[in-house]
């Protein structure tokens, strides 16, 4: 069945959803950035919209809110992740659910910071909320948990920030210091100009908070404030040297367990499943009856994240 998508956010993720929706048999009928929107009930032409954005810095003539008046089945929320009240993403979701539409989020804010509010709105709506893309990009973490059943998964841990992992694994492999590798990562586009969210562990913590919310299955609500978070700025090359001498290495590891959420640089054996290199991500699920499951892959990027968004959309059919 072909579904009509309304996409909020015209960045790496929203733009890729626009490009790839056709490949999944869906149409993007509305598309917005921060100041404008384009609406076409027959489906938007991706290249025309991209050209317009590139040329004029807008995607169309209408105001962003016009998206909500379009005839759509699923709202794709891909605006920037914000902390605290998770706005404007949260209000976007609220609006769509009030109109009994489905919502698929790439934005981590509403699921990490206002999980109970979100679930309460969902309960009153005909629409549902899905957010596979918010945790680990293309890696099917949440759908795996849903297949297993949250009560059968006792913990999730792993590496869910490619930028921090790139920096640590390069420091370890090349014997370079943090500042040097950070600058290199920025040149390569792996780290942003302001890398705070990534290197201070906040991005990873948001993902593990989301995992904790999913695993706790409504019993306890977690938000970023409940997480114990330490980034990688205090891991010098000397620590990596000492770890390597002993067959170990250091990775920014997140954990969502019965004890709560924690993100910190941790010593792990070299060559172990969690010691992924570069921007690779990995999640390890601890199951009650079936031991550990490891899933790894690309945790970020436009097409990768859009793939997770469109898998969520396909689950609605």
């Amino acid at each position: 069945m072909s579904l009509r998508l309304a996409v909020l956010g015209a960045g790496a993720v929203g733009g890729s959803v626009l490009d790839l929706a056709g490949d999944y048999g869906h149409d993007v009928v509305a598309f917005a950035d921060s100041s404008s929107s384009a609406v076409d009930p027959a489906g938007l032409d991706p290249s025309a919209v991209h050209d317009r954005k590139e040329r004029d810095g807008v995607v169309g003539e209408a105001a962003p809110e016009a998206v909500f008046d379009a005839d759509y089945d699923v709202l794709v929320e891909a605006t920037p992740t914000t902390l605290g009240d998770a706005e404007p993403g949260f209000s976007h979701v609220e609006r769509a659910l009030a109109d009994d539409r489905h919502v698929v989020l790439a934005n981590k804010g509403p699921v990490a910071e206002r999980y109970a509010d979100l679930r309460a709105l969902e309960a009153e709506s005909e629409g549902t909320v899905q957010f596979e893309a918010a945790v680990g990009g293309a890696i099917p973490v949440l759908s795996t948990i849903s297949d297993l059943g949250a009560p059968h998964v006792t913990a999730a841990r792993g590496v869910l920030n490619g930028t921090a992992n790139f920096i640590l694994s390069r420091m370890a492999a090349e014997g370079l210091d943090y500042e040097h590798v950070l600058a290199e990562a920025q040149d390569l586009g792996v780290a942003e100009a302001d890398p705070t969210f990534d290197v201070d562990g906040i991005d990873a913590a948001l993902k593990f908070v989301i995992l904790a919310n999913v695993l706790s299955d409504g019993e306890t609500e977690y938000a970023l404030d409940d997480a114990e978070v330490e980034g990688i700025r205090n891991v010098p090359g000397t620590a990596l040297d000492l770890a390597a001498e002993d067959g170990r290495t250091v990775r920014l590891i997140g954990e969502a367990t019965a004890d709560g959420v924690r993100v910190a640089p941790r010593l792990i054996p070299q060559g172990s499943a969690l010691s992924v290199t570069g921007t690779q991500n990995i999640v390890q699920l601890e199951t009650k009856h079936a031991g550990q499951l490891n899933i790894s892959g690309r945790g970020a990027g436009g097409p990768e994240t859009a793939t997770a968004v469109l898998s969520d959309v396909s689950r609605l059919e």
């Binding site: 330490e230 205090n234 770890a243 250091v250 590891i253 910190a264 941790r266 054996p269 499943a273 969690l274």
Partner: peptide, 12 residues
């Protein structure tokens, strides 16, 4: 000082 702690479980 900062501590880099080991990850006890799941590190195989």
């Amino acid at each position: 000082l900062h501590v880099v702690e080991p990850l006890a479980e799941g590190s195989q």
